[in-house]
Design a protein around this nucleic acid. Structure first.
Length: 421
DNA sequence: TCTGGGGTCCTAGGACCC
DNA sequence: TCTGGGGTCCTAGGACCC
């Protein structure tokens, strides 16, 4: 096998730059919801010492003084640019897997017979840059884990100009010998600490560790990672997205919420969004859960966190059924006298349409014309600004998130089209 | 004042069955 | 004196990913 991992450089920050060429060479950061903390940063921002996940309020002043520019998250823009990048890549290979909003695995089997793989990598870069304005790097290897490692090398060492080919064993071992084990795909902070204690600090040392020992001390997951590092593919290409097993919609509130009424509004809003996602998956759910919690960073506040589930008699994807369940649940777990900062809705136990075991003793109560109604709502809400909502979702939504620094939706809203004077 | 959101997979342990 | 063995299913929790 030969895989290529195509990875966008500082994806969100690069998206902000696509329509703002003046930001070239300027430190750029993108913030999480409510302008909470840094979730993406350009190379220039890294160079002036900004770190991933840093709370914005702590670095705001010094960052602006150094000439940096910050943006609130603009997911409409990022999703659209992502689609363009993926469409461009699809033209370069017969088989590919969209792995995340900013990464794709390409199957290069066969391509290595017609062209030099490194050359192919540069062609990829050039085409994506030309067609979408997005800078990418390309890592190539015989397994997905090695392709990931190659991408790490391409990011870390500028001499590679963003393309690394690990087809050859000696190249694999050379890079792995200088790659910290924590950078390996599948090794997180907990595993890293554990491995370090055993004296394993580089990717190469992990690759050379006895496989039986790995299986005994850890699990089959790490065993696969080790085999992949040795060049034996254990993780295949997933071309077609699988149906989801759960759907979560949760948000931190723009400001603290104390009354059941407001928290109910927020939860109903998330429930409606979750139901919409469920219908998009063409699935029906049987279990609905609700959770809410206070702000753990406010040590002076009384803390409370709870989650509760409700099992419906019949799987549904009708927003009204889900709203009924979430209303019951939030009433049960809500407690007076607490400052809530976050809540969420979770849907699980999915079924395909009409395929489920119904209860012998409880008569089914199907809502009339449910499908047509939901379809119509989704259609209206999918077209633009005008939204049909349920009364429970509230009107003013004082709890909704705050985004003070958002860029225009250049590619998805007519009013936000770029104007050139 | 102020700290994100959305997923998957694996394992251990308990309940329960014959 | 002495109390088995084998299996499934479900759930919670932990780890990882972007």
């Amino acid at each position: 096998m030969t895989y290529a991992l195509v990875d966008c450089n500082s994806f969100y920050a690069s998206c902000e730059r696509v329509f703002r060429p003046d930001l070239k060479n300027v430190p750029v950061v993108v913030l999480s919801n409510n302008d909470g903390c840094v979730v993406a940063l350009s190379k220039e921002a890294k160079n002036i010492g900004i770190k991933m996940c840093e709370p914005w309020f702590k670095i705001k002043d010094s960052f602006s003084k150094k000439g940096g520019v910050a943006f609130s998250s603009n997911y409409e823009l990022y999703a659209d640019i992502s689609t363009r990048v993926m469409q461009t890549l699809e033209g370069l290979t017969p088989r590919m897997e969209i792995y995340s909003i900013d990464e794709a695995f390409l199957d290069l089997s066969g391509i290595n017979f017609c062209t030099d793989l490194k050359e192919f990598g540069y062609e990829c870069q050039e085409r994506v840059r030309c067609w979408t304005g997005m800078p990418v790097r390309v890592g190539i290897g015989p397994t997905k884990t090695l392709a990931k490692a190659a991408s790490y090398g391409a990011k870390k060492y500028s001499a590679t100009q963003g393309v690394v080919d690990l087809s050859k064993l000696e190249r694999q071992r050379k890079l792995m010998s200088i790659m910290p084990v924590g950078e390996v795909w599948g090794v997180g902070s907990k595993l890293r600490k554990h491995l370090n204690k055993m004296g394993i600090t580089t990717a190469l040392e992990l690759a050379d560790t006895d496989i039986k020992l790995i299986r005994r001390r850890f699990s089959i997951v790490l065993e696969r990672t080790v085999m992949e590092l040795r060049g034996y593919p254990c993780i295949g290409l997933e071309e077609h997205p699988t149906t989801k097993k759960e759907i979560v919609v949760s948000r931190t509130f723009g400001k603290k919420v104390t009354t059941l009424e407001s928290i109910n509004e927020a939860i109903s809003d998330y429930a409606a969004r979750a139901a919409e996602k469920l219908r998009h998956e063409k699935q029906y759910c049987r279990v609905v859960s609700v959770f809410m919690r206070t702000n753990p960073f406010r040590l002076q506040d009384q803390q409370y966190s709870n989650i509760l589930s409700y099992r419906l008699n019949t799987p549904t994807n009708d927003t009204r059924d889900i709203l009924y369940a979430t209303r019951k649940l939030s009433k049960k777990i809500y407690k007076k006298g607490y400052n809530f900062i976050k809540a969420g809705v979770m849907l699980s136990d999915f079924y395909d349409k009409g395929i489920y075991q119904s209860d012998f003793f409880i008569p089914e109560c199907k809502r009339p014309k449910s499908e047509k109604l939901m379809e119509t709502i989704d259609k209206i809400n999918g077209t633009g600004e005008v939204k049909v909502t349920f009364a429970a979702q509230g009107i003013k939504k004082p709890w909704s998130m705050q985004r003070y620094l958002q860029s225009p939706k250049y590619t998805t809203n007519w009013n936000d089209l770029l104007v050139v004077r």
